[in-house]
Amino acid sequence: MEKSESISNYFSRMLPLVNQMKADGETITDQKIIRTSTLQFEYIVTSIEESRDLSTTTVDKLMGSLQVHEQRLKEKSKMVEETLQC
């Protein structure tokens, strides 16, 4: 994952690769996909790994959780910028 890349762009880029690897017979788990995210998502990835059964969690649910976290980071960053401008 690129540092400034959004979660939706990341998953859009990764899913075709993962699907091709699965079609070629490789075993790719959702856990491997989320582990390639950037450091800013490290603690949410850890939380997801500890709180969910990744063998039954869909890619859509993982992506949704990461997108919610991404949105909160953006809102917090915007709030800090507005505070500093005051």
Results as ranks from 00 to 15, higher is better:
25 G>K: 14
21 M>C: 10
16 P>Q: 03
8 S>Q: 07
44 I>W: 04
13 R>N: 09
28 I>V: 15
4 S>H: 13
40 Q>H: 01
41 F>Y: 14
19 N>F: 00
26 E>F: 15
6 S>M: 03
36 T>M: 13
33 I>M: 07
12 S>D: 00
37 S>I: 10
20 Q>Y: 02
23 A>C: 00
24 D>G: 09
6 S>G: 08
15 L>D: 08
11 F>C: 06
15 L>A: 10
20 Q>F: 12
20 Q>M: 09
5 E>C: 12
29 T>C: 00
19 N>P: 09
28 I>H: 06
10 Y>K: 08
6 S>K: 08
42 E>T: 02
37 S>W: 06
22 K>S: 11
14 M>C: 12
35 R>N: 09
22 K>R: 15
31 Q>G: 14
26 E>Q: 15
38 T>Y: 08
24 D>K: 14
34 I>G: 03
11 F>W: 02
45 V>R: 07
22 K>L: 07
10 Y>N: 12
36 T>Q: 14
28 I>C: 04
27 T>G: 07
11 F>T: 00
46 T>W: 03
34 I>H: 06
32 K>C: 14
14 M>T: 11
17 L>H: 10
16 P>A: 05
47 S>A: 09
43 Y>M: 05
38 T>M: 06
41 F>R: 02
42 E>Y: 12
45 V>A: 14
47 S>G: 01
38 T>Q: 07
17 L>W: 00
7 I>G: 05
29 T>E: 04
22 K>N: 10
27 T>C: 12
27 T>M: 07
28 I>L: 11
25 G>H: 14
39 L>P: 01
39 L>S: 15
19 N>S: 13
13 R>A: 06
19 N>C: 05
3 K>F: 05
40 Q>P: 10
37 S>E: 01
19 N>G: 01
17 L>Q: 01
24 D>A: 01
28 I>W: 04
13 R>D: 05
43 Y>G: 01
20 Q>W: 05
12 S>W: 05
40 Q>A: 05
22 K>T: 13
14 M>H: 00
47 S>D: 09
39 L>M: 14
41 F>A: 00
21 M>N: 07
33 I>F: 05
18 V>Y: 03
39 L>N: 02
18 V>K: 01
15 L>N: 04
46 T>V: 10
15 L>K: 15
41 F>G: 09
4 S>L: 09
27 T>A: 09
5 E>G: 07
12 S>A: 15
12 S>I: 02
29 T>I: 00
35 R>Q: 08
22 K>D: 01
32 K>F: 03
8 S>C: 08
47 S>F: 11
38 T>N: 11
14 M>I: 15
43 Y>T: 11
7 I>F: 05
32 K>G: 12
27 T>K: 11
17 L>N: 04
22 K>C: 03
47 S>I: 13
23 A>E: 01
21 M>P: 10
35 R>P: 00
12 S>R: 03
30 D>A: 03
17 L>M: 11
